[in-house]
Design a protein around this nucleic acid. Structure first.
Lengths: 152, 152
DNA sequence: GCAGCATTGTTTGCGTACAAACGATGTGTT
DNA sequence: AACACATCGTTTGTACGCAAACAATGCTGC
């Protein structure tokens, strides 16, 4: 028993009522962790991450897109979307061809396998959303989503 | 003639009302991105990330902690907290000594420089929180935090 | 035409985030 | 004591996330 029972108050106290666990940033981070875990557990056997899923769904929805444009639509910067697309291309879920009018661009689109995968995974999308929001009542879920949407 | 001008509707439509941008996961991810950006811009000149800040504040508050224990208190798994502590130790903000009773443990604590830094940064903590929640009214902020807290 | 500026995509470097496997140590059971 | 099992911290490998710098290409104004 060498640990002193009272290590409680630091030399300088934290600001009144400042509790790390109650800070928005910390709560958002933990909610994000929880959602990611639920997603990976529920989305299906395919090894697809949340960001990969977002890219695939957006391509499914929009058809052909340039890489940076897709990144903007899914909130990924150019360096990040580059890696995501590289991995999905390596798995033959995405194909690309040069743009006719703009030699800088890569026109991205889903392969048949990619379309098939999205069609299969998207059925589980709402289930993941529901599981994430499960601790809240339907009314609270609507409130939460409305407020969260304004914080972006 | 196989070039179809209309790439609009995918071979199989997405589920009714399924909009990627409205999914909780996507919204939480973007809120997290926004908060991180605000934090880095507002927390001060010190090059400290959100997770490093969490570790430092928790050590300030609790005194001496083992590495994994600190990880649990800040929602980081052993592999993640290891990297965080390694970097903070390299910057001489954290020191460690072996535990007398348990040879597996590293007893972590803040150095004087670490305590000084926390005391300085923590003053900006509430400002970051406020900036993050700024789009909401005070009432909405309370609602949002109460709901968010239940999603963890 | 062309000079300046913007955009596209790439690379490097750093920092989370987590799964999986590992060696060392602690603990509880028999 | 010996065994099984849990916990502590580490390492490796993969995947975001972003800053910064870069070359290639496009665009706009003069």
């Amino acid at each position: 028993m060498n640990t002193k029972p009272e290590v409680k108050s630091p030399p300088t106290a934290l600001p009144e009522g400042y509790v790390l666990e109650d800070q928005v940033g910390h709560l958002i981070r933990r909610a994000h962790q929880r959602h990611t875990a639920l997603f990976l557990a529920m989305i299906g056997d395919a090894q697809v991450t949340t960001t990969q899923y977002a890219a695939l769904v957006k391509l499914y929805e929009m058809g052909e897109l340039s890489q940076n444009h897709l990144g903007r639509l899914t909130a990924m910067d150019p360096a990040t979307i580059q890696g995501v697309i590289r991995r999905l291309t390596a798995r033959k879920l995405i194909s690309h061809r040069p743009d006719k009018n703009d030699k800088r661009r890569r026109c991205l689109s889903l392969t048949p396998a990619g379309r098939e995968l999205v069609a299969r995974l998207v059925a589980n999308g709402p289930k993941v959303t529901q599981a994430t929001l499960d601790p809240l009542s339907p009314d609270e879920q609507r409130q939460f989503l409305a407020l969260l949407k304004r914080l972006t």
